[in-house]
Nucleic acid binder design. Structure first.
Lengths: 195, 195
DNA sequence: ACCTGAACACCGTTCAAGT
DNA sequence: ACCTGAACACCGTTCAAGT
């Protein structure tokens, strides 16, 4: 009656994330995570509902690593820096990252990032009724790129990836220019910018 | 000595694909595929090297379903029709499709589609030394969209997806316009077109 | 040549039992 | 309250054996 917990949910999530990054998603196992924590497999079930819940935790952990930029920076810089932060997270977690593209993005961590994108897009002049749609499209494009870059569909080196991403950013800047016909704002309209 | 085979690789691949589409990738099991074919689990190992090889087969099967358009059609129509065919394949195989984004695209089936895209892009006026790069970017964008649309990251209906995809096509048309500065070809340059 | 039974080392999960 | 041992129903894979 009243034993202090030896492990916490965050420990298990971290162990699972590390396993995925070291050996791929297939090596993420209740047994392996428990062993890594020096505890029996069954002990995990006091802290996570089941394996699916554990993987949700991993996704949430990845999202929490995406840095939100200073809101006082110009919107182009903010979008661009969030996209870079997402790519860095993907590179840090090549095994676990593909989960992001497959789970419905409706968790607190996902909303946190999305909200910051909405604000930048608003300043960019995207009309409010188009915000949801534009964010969805941009995040799909960036996520798809990051997963491809990370999960092995691309085989070339970093320099090529960076150049490709720069081209993708130009494309997205074009989209923003196209969406922001009303409400002119202080941005140079044809500058290769955001997200 | 000399017993006629009861099952063939194609049967196993089809069974695995059906399982994935009905119950998700997690339900694809050597046991389940064998049961579906009315054969013992171990019989499969005469026709596929292991489970990874089976999943490669599934990817190849999906790629084979992407229809290549008549080469005499205008390049815009061809790109657009290949993209639509890919989306249809994704919708037909929601469980298995995400595999496409994660496996290196270096199989005969992948090359077959890629080659057709190269040809269309060439006619669009993309300079030869940019072909590989542009194709890579376009396929990443379309694949990322199709996986998101299919694997549950989006929760809205078909109409919204179609509208989003139309916007994505405009984006890609912008890219082609930007890449095709030399070698003017017979295309209307600002028409919402390809891939 | 093709298929199968038995076996092995692993999975996820539950439940009663220990402290 | 937290952890564990034993147990169950499942995995992928190998190998010797059947026809």
């Amino acid at each position: 009656v009243g034993r202090p917990a030896q492990i916490h949910r965050a420990d298990i999530v971290r162990a699972a994330t590390d396993l995925a990054d070291e050996g791929g998603l297939g090596t993420v196992t209740m047994h392996a995570a428990a062993t890594r924590l020096g505890v029996s497999t069954m002990a995990l079930y006091r802290h996570v509902r089941n394996k699916a819940d554990l993987l949700d935790g991993v996704v949430e952990h990845l999202l929490s690593e995406i840095a939100l930029p200073d809101p006082d920076l110009p919107w182009q810089v903010r979008l661009s820096s969030m996209a870079e932060s997402l790519r860095r997270t993907a590179r840090r977690h090549p095994g676990a990252f593909p989960l992001l593209l497959q789970l419905p993005a409706d968790t607190p961590g996902a909303r946190r990032v999305r909200q910051a994108v909405y604000e930048a897009l608003g300043e960019a002049g995207v009309p409010p009724e188009q915000l949801v749609r534009v964010e969805r499209l941009l995040s799909t494009v960036v996520l798809g790129f990051a997963v491809s870059e990370t999960a092995g569909r691309f085989t070339h080196g970093r320099a090529t990836s960076d150049a490709d991403f720069a081209l993708l950013e130009e494309l997205m800047a074009d989209l923003l220019g196209r969406m922001a016909e009303e409400r002119p704002r202080g941005a140079a309209p044809s500058e290769p910018s955001g997200t």
